[in-house]
Design a protein around this nucleic acid. Structure first.
Lengths: 112, 112
DNA sequence: CTGATACTGAACCATTTAGTTCAGCATAGC
DNA sequence: GCTATGCTGAACTAAATGGTTCAGTATCAG
């Protein structure tokens, strides 16, 4: 199994916010300016731009400044890392869940 | 596409911490007590227990108290939700990445 | 019963996060 | 050139996070 660094931290943390997941969802339908991204949210432009910044730092979003407009798009395939981590751990998880049922049976009786 | 709630928040946030991912990794090799989990970390028992609590709240870990020992195991398949979200979004991500290259070509020339 | 073990809760602290407002700067359009 | 637009930076705030210590409770072992 590959050894993962704390690069994942940023990606997972970025995905932990519903606003940011909504931004990714929106960008999945095409690139957008910061203002366009902000439009559906009840939030200041500055506030939303911070979310974009977080996503960019996590390399989930890439942006290009064109004139006075910053165009935002889905970025490098950072989700791959995230997904790979989950896949690696899902197998052991599933294996363990089976035994977990047994464990419960064994210990339940002893519980106070 | 399924509509995901903010249930994901807790799961993603829980996974954003390397200590907690290490705990999950450890539990993948079998259940453990809180003390056993704490052993490899340079952290107080109380501190580590908080991480366990976060994982339990996120439904990534389940615990049972047996006597004075709390036995921790990998919990319900919450990772499924996380993985499903990523899979749903990966397709649009990949589609978009192709067009992103074009976008870059188009806009790069105009950049200051 | 006594003491050691295993955890738990409360209180505290530093840092980060998520948001705000306001002022400023660069570009686009007339 | 003037003005509106789109974004950006600084400064501030409230709340959450990640950690600590210390004191307490419950149980197990002898």
């Amino acid at each position: 199994m590959v050894q993962y660094q704390s690069e994942l931290d940023g990606a997972f943390a970025a995905l932990a916010d519903p606003t940011r997941r909504a931004i990714l969802q929106r960008l999945g339908r095409g690139s957008a300016s910061v203002s366009e991204l902000a439009e559906p949210f009840e939030m200041s432009l500055t506030g939303l731009k911070k979310h974009v910044q977080v996503l960019e730092d996590a390399e989930l979003v890439t942006t290009v400044k064109v004139g006075r407009v910053r165009r935002c798009s889905l970025g490098p395939q950072k989700l791959d890392d995230v997904q790979r981590w989950i896949e690696d751990h899902r197998q052991t998880l599933e294996d363990r869940l089976d035994r977990f049922a047994e464990l419960l049976d064994r210990t339940q009786g002893q519980e106070k």
